[in-house]
Design a protein around this nucleic acid. Structure first.
Lengths: 239, 239
DNA sequence: AACTCAAATTAGTATTATAATGGTATGTAT
DNA sequence: ATACATACCATTATAATACTAATTTGAGTT
């Protein structure tokens, strides 16, 4: 039986404390991937909180992609990181939202001219200066993705100042994108990608192509990524 | 006798735990490819679970492609079919080599002109007559692949005379190819393909594009196929 | 060795039932 | 916004029992 510490005297809302405790149990391996949590009613008993509060805490973890639910069956720890294809977040934000420490290994960080394709996507002349930012992205010390971003240089601070979050850097210039479109495809990892991701060659990867822009239509970022196919799935809600 | 650990104290539904235990036994090699599982009633005795629960656990593994069932016969561990990428064999020959009965369900069998792409691949004018041969390929009664072959009509007997083996038909005209090249890619099955292959939509399939020719360079066949990704793997020897 | 056939064994389906789980709504209080 | 109590609904998990359909097995016969 698990223990879920929290404090009623805390200024932090109860549901946030409970969510944090559950997240910690999962990250510690106390509740394994694929396993079910105690039922909502059981979590009420464990914490003394109401079912509505418990549901709100679990809702939060579901939004983070850590859990999923099935009526009549239970609440389960996700086996893959779910990312909404409509979600305009960055790797860094997503990792932190999951309670994991983001990291980067730089592959490419320089200025260049765009290729014809990149210029078309970014809606700039081929003579423009763009920043090429290629990185292996880590979460909790584990390589999960490779990203190659191309950004119009004038919309970024100097590239040497970029740390983990490209979006945080864009924010500094008031250029954090608000809209975008991304395409997701299944593929096999190349030998290079496999090496960088510490996966076997020919493992399935998810290839993502993303284009983002401001509300006024200014194109900001064209990014091509490969995410580990065994660790990610991209979810699209159908309305 | 195998052991199938699970815990009634766990929050995870019983059928999921049982499925996981069976999967582990298979992955550990304790139950080999092609072997039968203990009967459903036997698994009940082993686990104390009801037959409905056992069937639900086995259903899950069947959906994953790990197992298959036959009424009156048993439940078996699926075999993955290894095919050398350098091997120039046909589906029929490969199935027979495995001791299985090949079969076909015709989708398209007619004469037509090639598309520009097909004409280029086949090295013939677009005005040429080609045979379009589209089939679901079965092995042991099970749909495993979808093939769309385009063959220069003059190099084939009349298409009504073609049975399971295209290569046997080509042999009749002395046009069985001796050389070729094929490309293998990973993809997801379209809804149509999923239906034809009796697999879930968006299951992974291996897409194969094959071009074959005679020793004298005459191009014979341009074939595009989708093979069930859970049942096929293409192997390359490294020398 | 080959064949037939009944019995045994296997998976497939249906019905009925209970219990446990998540899902939703309403109203109240701070 | 947060938290709670209460009530009810919908879905799923699990089970027992019974029966059907398909396949395998073994005994007997030729």
């Amino acid at each position: 039986m698990i223990d879920l510490p929290f404090s009623k005297n805390s200024n932090t809302p109860l549901y946030i404390q409970i969510a944090k405790s559950i997240r910690l149990k999962i990250n510690e391996g106390k509740i394994a991937s694929g396993e079910a949590l105690p039922s909502e009613r059981e979590l009420c008993e464990l914490t003394g909180a109401s079912r509505v509060t418990i549901r709100k805490a679990v809702d939060k973890l579901i939004d983070e992609g850590l859990l999923w639910r099935k009526q009549g069956s239970g609440t389960f720890v996700s086996e893959r990181i779910e990312v909404q294809t409509t979600h305009l977040g960055g790797f860094t934000d997503d990792a932190r939202a999951r309670g994991e420490e983001p990291g980067s290994i730089w592959l490419i960080r320089n200025y260049a001219n765009p290729t014809r394709e990149e210029a078309e996507k970014l809606n700039v002349p081929m003579s423009s200066a763009v920043a090429r930012l290629g990185r292996v992205r880590l979460s909790g010390g584990e390589p999960l993705a490779i990203e190659h971003a191309v950004v119009v240089a004038s919309r970024l601070p100097p590239i040497d100042e970029i740390e983990d979050s490209l979006y945080a850097a864009l924010e500094i210039k008031g250029k954090r994108p608000q809209q975008g479109r991304q395409k997701v495809r299944a593929s096999l990892a190349s030998p290079t990608e496999a090496g960088l991701l510490s996966i076997q060659e020919n493992s399935e990867v998810l290839r993502i192509e993303r284009l983002t822009w401001l509300d006024d239509g200014t194109v900001i970022e064209y990014t091509r990524s490969a995410y580990r196919g065994d660790r990610y799935e991209f979810v699209t809600d159908i309305n």
